[in-house]
Design a protein around this nucleic acid. Sequence first.
DNA 1: GTCTATATAATGATAGAC
DNA 2: GTCTATCATTATATAGAC
Lengths: 174, 174
Amino acid sequence: MLEEGYAAVTVRRVAKSAGVSATLLHYYYATADDLLIALYSHASDKDLASLKSALAADDPLAALWAYQTDSTRTALGVEFLALANHRKSIRMKIVQFAEHARALQTKALADLIAPDSEFVPCSPVCVSMLLTSVSRNMIFESGVGISSGHAEARAFVQQTLARLKRKRMRPQPP
Amino acid sequence: MLEEGYAAVTVRRVAKSAGVSATLLHYYYATADDLLIALYSHASDKDLASLKSALAADDPLAALWAYQTDSTRTALGVEFLALANHRKSIRMKIVQFAEHARALQTKALADLIAPDSEFVPCSPVCVSMLLTSVSRNMIFESGVGISSGHAEARAFVQQTLARLKRKRMRPQPP
DNA sequence: GTCTATATAATGATAGAC
DNA sequence: GTCTATCATTATATAGAC
């Protein structure tokens, strides 16, 4: 899927790379869509674990950005999104996971960024959406060989995240 | 391509929707890749005209953002990018156009935004890359039904662009 | 130029042996 | 469970009539 796109993931090829016959895959997964859903389920479980681990790290903002810019994970995610675009059977699962991941990030970001430190305010859900946008596009473009502005965007995001970071305070007296 | 993805654009289906036989298409376009290249060439010519028109508008920053968030144009662009990801024959043309469009935007932005008005500096090429990222992801997600953070991100971009806008000055004395 | 007919390969899915 | 064999469909591409 990473190398040739979602359209290259066929029952026969998955079966071959798993060393079994195509019929056996049909035995476990009645349709090709069922197989893709199972693949996505596996990938999204891994994603969710990585995301939760990042949000629990020492520097959650930096870890979140590292999670977002993991090229394998993000490239796979984009491929599944493209798949969702014209395979309605698996669209719902992908949308659900995307919304769930964004909600998790939003909730975490509410505690991680200072609410009033920005000239133009950007809410937690806005930060989550922007981070996802930049990383997805950067990984996607890198995959085909586009690189203009990538280093600058990466530096900008990192500096902005550092600036947004809420300073940890001692517990306030009541 | 918009409704079913790039994989649905086959010689047969294009021929049928054009009311001719598939063989006739092969007469004009030897291979399926040649056909896709011709389709992309047509689409990118239109894109380039729209971009140049936007950059020559009264409010180029607002027009650029309108260009970037044109859903048909952007969704098609994303589809071609996905195609480039695993059809090497047309990858080069797509990369060339993407780099060209980014360079055009970068050059225009250098005159449109104030260089030192930002807390964390973001160069013109960085602005171009970020705008493309946000619009692409917003359109892409909207297409499958993801919408969290979209309104916030859109408002943030518009406010930020307004704030970045370089005030037009009278010609300076030498 | 434009067509019908066809060669070849790959797809999803099923029947039925073991 | 796991396999071979097979069907129907669709893809790219070509041969050859007109």
